[in-house]
C-alpha cells in the first residue's frame, strides 16, 4: 500500500513537472476567441466546452454562429474580431434562451452524485447519499445536470429579479 502511495506521489511530481516543462503558450487567436465566448460550457456548439469551440473556430473547422448562449451579440463580437460578416445564429445548434439557474429540489434528491459528475463548472456541492445543492452564483445554466438526474429533481428556474441584480431601465421611448 505504502509503495502505491509513494508511486503516485512520484507520478504526481512528474506530471507537475511535465505540465511546467512542456507548457505550450496558448495560441493568441484562440485566447481572444475564447474570451468572447460565454463560458457556459454547455456543449451546444457540438464541442465539449468553450475552449474546444474556440480552437475549432481558429482552425476554420467551425462557424462563428454555433453558440446559443452567446446569442446574436456573441456572433457579432466574433465577426468583429475575425473580420467576418455577422450572421444569424444557426438554429440547428439551439436558440438563444433566457439565462436560468439549476435548483435541486432537495427533498427529492437521493444523493446519487450523477449531477456532480455532469456539471462542467463544479457548481454542485454534495457527497454520496447526502442531499446535493447548486451554488447559484456559480451555475452557468448549461442544463447538463438535468438529464442525468434519475429522480428528475433538478429544475431550471429563471433568475429572480432582486435589488442585487436590478438595473436602471432605459426610458420608455415614445418620442414625438
Amino acid at each position: 500500500m505504502l509503495w502505491i502511495c509513494l508511486l503516485f506521489a512520484i507520478l504526481g511530481v512528474i506530471l507537475g513537472y511535465a505540465a511546467f516543462r512542456f507548457k505550450v503558450e496558448g495560441e493568441p487567436l484562440v485566447v481572444e476567441i475564447e474570451a468572447l465566448l460565454p463560458q457556459t460550457q454547455c456543449g451546444q456548439c457540438s464541442f465539449p466546452g468553450c475552449k474546444p469551440y474556440a480552437e475549432a473556430i481558429a482552425q476554420g473547422k467551425a462557424d462563428i454562429n454555433q453558440c446559443p448562449p452567446g446569442g446574436e451579440v456573441g456572433v457579432k463580437a466574433l465577426a468583429d474580431l475575425l473580420g467576418l460578416d455577422a450572421k444569424p445564429l444557426d438554429e440547428s445548434f439551439g436558440i438563444e434562451k433566457e439565462k436560468k439557474v439549476a435548483v435541486i429540489v432537495e427533498a427529492d434528491c437521493i444523493g446519487c452524485t450523477l449531477c456532480i459528475q455532469a456539471c462542467p463548472v463544479d457548481a454542485i456541492l454534495g457527497a454520496a447519499k447526502y442531499m446535493h445543492t447548486v451554488i447559484a452564483s456559480e451555475c452557468t445554466g448549461c442544463d447538463l445536470c438535468v438529464e442525468p438526474c434519475p429522480v428528475d429533481c433538478i429544475v431550471m428556474s429563471p433568475i429572480k429579479p432582486s435589488v442585487l441584480n436590478w438595473q436602471w431601465p432605459e426610458p420608455i421611448q415614445n418620442r414625438h
Binding site: 463560458q39 460550457q41 457548481a123 452564483s137 456559480e138
Partner: peptide, 10 residues
C-alpha cells in the same frame, strides 16, 4: 463570472 466558470472548467 465567465472568467471564474472558465477557471473551474479548466
Amino acid at each position: 463570472a465567465a472568467m471564474l466558470a472558465k477557471q473551474r472548467f479548466e
